[in-house]
């Protein structure tokens, strides 16, 4: 049984099935990301300026990643155009760049992520707050939170074997605070003078020397993980979901580029259609980033 218009376009609609299918799918994707963007707006409007971290992301890296994605969109289209002119080798070259761009984007993103997981904010009991890094045995500490300081008993499985050894409570630890806190900027807009370098991102502004911090003085401690604040919650949710889309897109494009390329010999028209459909998806993914970048990094 042959399903009509799988390859050729239906004359009255001008579309082949997969193109319509991907557009419908993208419509739902628009609603998915639309829901999250709306949530961003709602959360942001509800948040006070001190509780909406600002300037904690690395703008140069973000900008670079943005251009990586824009470049990948360009190569997708040029690859498709090359294939339309029957130039398979050229298509292969362009599309290889696309795939590399995708992988590059993801690696850079994961470096950014790990940066965040080792960067902390402390809410002290006296009301002041500091961001910075925690050092443990000369290494950066990952994923600490208030509970980590209290220590934890050993975790045992059903047979009584120790799965995770007990961790002792921590009374004091080494902390190298950043020069400024993001809420300084908020104070500044209220008319208070602020340190001159407050506009630089936390990374650029360097760190003060390490100090000892007593657990007893701490109200709350959190790495820059989703639980840190609604800002990081929506940041990680949006970028992780977007990253997942990048990954899926890259896998699909790589499949069509590699093992799926046999189709070029047997049914070139359908093969070109596949490039177009995957390219449409890819453009959507990139378009999402074009919106994500300013609202997460700049605003």
């Amino acid at each position: 049984m042959e399903i009509p218009y799988n390859v050729k376009s239906r004359p009255d609609t001008g579309l082949y099935n997969a193109k319509l299918g991907i557009w419908l799918f993208l419509a739902s994707e628009v609603m998915l990301f639309g829901g999250l963007f709306t949530s961003y707006v709602v959360l942001r409007v509800n948040a006070s300026a001190e509780n909406w971290p600002h300037g904690l992301l690395n703008i140069p890296i973000g900008t670079f990643n943005t251009f990586v994605l824009i470049a990948s969109s360009v190569t997708v289209v040029l690859g498709w155009a090359a294939l339309k002119m029957n130039n398979f080798a050229r298509y292969r070259k362009f599309q290889a760049i696309t795939i590399l761009c995708a992988l590059g984007f993801l690696s850079i993103k994961s470096i950014e992520y790990s940066d965040k997981f080792t960067h902390y904010e402390i809410w002290f009991k006296d009301g002041h707050r500091q961001t910075g890094h925690i050092h443990q045995d000369g290494k950066k500490a990952w994923f600490w939170n208030t509970k980590t300081l209290a220590g934890a008993p050993a975790v045992k499985d059903a047979k009584g074997n120790v799965v995770k050894p007990a961790s002792p409570p921590i009374a004091e630890f080494e902390f190298s605070p950043d020069a400024t806190h993001y809420s300084d900027a908020a104070k500044h807009t209220k008319g208070e003078p602020a340190a001159a370098e407050h506009k630089e991102s936390a990374h650029a502004s360097g760190e003060h020397a390490a100090v000892k911090v007593k657990t007893a003085d701490i109200k709350r401690l959190s790495a820059f993980v989703p639980a840190h604040s609604t800002y990081f919650a929506i940041y990680f949710t949006l970028t992780a979901l977007h990253g997942l889309h990048v990954l899926i897109g890259a896998v699909v494009i790589a499949y069509i580029w590699g093992p799926g390329a046999k189709l070029w010999k047997t049914n070139p028209e359908q093969y070109v259609n596949r490039i177009e459909v995957s390219g449409l998806f890819w453009h959507f993914v990139d378009l999402v980033w074009i919106f994500l970048f300013p609202i997460l990094y700049l605003l």
Partner: peptide, 9 residues
């Protein structure tokens, strides 16, 4: 088509 969305993009 891919062309159209590329222009949008």
């Amino acid at each position: 088509s891919l062309k159209a969305i590329h222009i949008v993009f």
